[in-house]
Design a protein around this nucleic acid. Structure first.
Lengths: 238, 238
DNA sequence: TAGATTGTTAATCGATTAACAATC
DNA sequence: TAGATTGTTAATCGATTAACAATC
């Protein structure tokens, strides 16, 4: 596997035997864009062609072609100089790297308006993320059925998540419950959390949290609005 | 206003007369963190103290103290060396810079499960973002009332948004409708859009779009899960 | 071979962080 | 004054982009 006789690149060589896609850590921003490329490529328009150039795909994805090639280089070499990328091969490499071939069972906590709406997304986008567990604290909701799944007691999180082999937890509770719920999910073995409650969660280092913070996003838009010439509707304080 | 007699710092001096907070463009990442500081400071715990140090606030917000001070320096000088930041003054500076004193009327498009849930957030977080207009394409929904607001025809977007002085548009439609809806909002004068539909919107340069892309976030979590030792539940293709 | 396009290097840009002089 | 903490500079780090040699 290792290149024999050649001087080694890195100072240490513990990753020599790993497949190419693991040699370098892929930057977060690149992963996000890779998901974007996968999405545009899967969208039937482009998939019809046998081959696609970095310029074409970059235009579809709305990014700089140099950045796109740099991004794709993290997958290894899947293009042909003078020709472009074979769409099928590239799709496969993207899916493989992103783990998009696999199924990630989801536990969703908080079956209020938002939680129910999320559960209703037909098992979440693209069938890779089936909601297998619904959890609640409110006894009035426990036992009911939402989107075809029985709502269970948050107290049973550990057993249910283990049985359903849950890998991703989604928090759709009111703000004050978010941190305790995260603690419960973590102790139930969940290592990936999507958080719809505002604010930051404190979790162990090996737990990945992605935020969907509506209040934050609105605040960012408000900032930009307030910087525009046009003054907003009305002033409150002051 | 300008420092007389002193050599000028920048090459050009067109911003000399502007208030301190506008002299430098504030990086996007900094704005996001500023919103975080505002949030922790408003959370009654910290607000009780008269003064707070960068170390304390940094700990509360979960960031590096040096970064915090750098971030706050974009607001101008509001701290006292040897003492810390006066909480009231800092809160005011944060609100002023972020435009959090002001009200930003919202138009929400797509009153399905997700849209209704969003509308139900009691006029959106913190009363700064009242939903004034609800828009739909489906005749069956037009005329109904959701969260106390009448659902109107998307065809009337322009008149309704103008009358309500809408500054922020929220897209909660199915994916294929997102781009046309964005076009409608833009032509209705909306310059800030929060998009819950997957994928990228094409808009003029002066329109700010923030994405809340559930599919993308799940994909990011899936990527990290697939890199862990523990193999996920089941393999699909291949 | 000539034309096209990748993969990668190097330059640029911007953001994070450490360190410390200024100063309360 | 001595101790504490800001505001800012400079160093570091990482990501973006341009440019081009490799090569189909």
């Amino acid at each position: 596997m290792a290149v024999s006789g050649q001087p080694e690149r890195g100072r240490h060589a513990p990753t020599d035997a790993l497949p190419v896609s693991r040699i370098r850590a892929i930057p977060e921003a690149t992963v996000a864009r890779l998901a974007g490329y996968l999405r545009v490529l899967s969208g039937s328009d482009a998939a019809a062609d046998v081959t696609i150039s970095s310029d074409e795909l970059a235009a579809l994805a709305g990014v700089n072609p140099a950045k796109l090639r740099k991004d794709l280089s993290y997958l290894g070499s899947h293009g042909t100089r003078g020709v472009g990328y074979d769409v099928t091969t590239l799709l496969d490499a993207l899916e493989r790297t992103l783990g998009a071939h696999e199924v990630y069972p989801v536990a969703l906590v908080g079956v209020g308006h938002l939680g129910s709406a999320l559960a209703g997304y037909a098992g979440f986008p693209g069938r890779g993320f089936p909601i297998r567990v619904l959890l609640e604290r409110d006894p009035a909701k426990i036992g009911s059925t939402v989107a075809g799944v029985r709502v269970s007691d948050i107290a049973d999180a550990q057993a249910l998540c283990a049985a359903a082999e849950v890998t991703i937890g989604v928090i759709a509770t009111p703000e004050p419950a978010a941190q305790p719920v995260a603690d419960v999910l973590v102790s139930a073995g969940v290592r990936s959390i999507l958080n719809f409650a505002p604010g930051r969660l404190v979790v162990p280092d090996d737990v990945e949290v992605r935020r969907m913070d509506l209040a934050l996003e609105l605040q960012m838009l408000a900032f930009h609005e307030s910087r525009r010439g046009r003054p907003p509707a009305r002033l409150e304080a002051l």
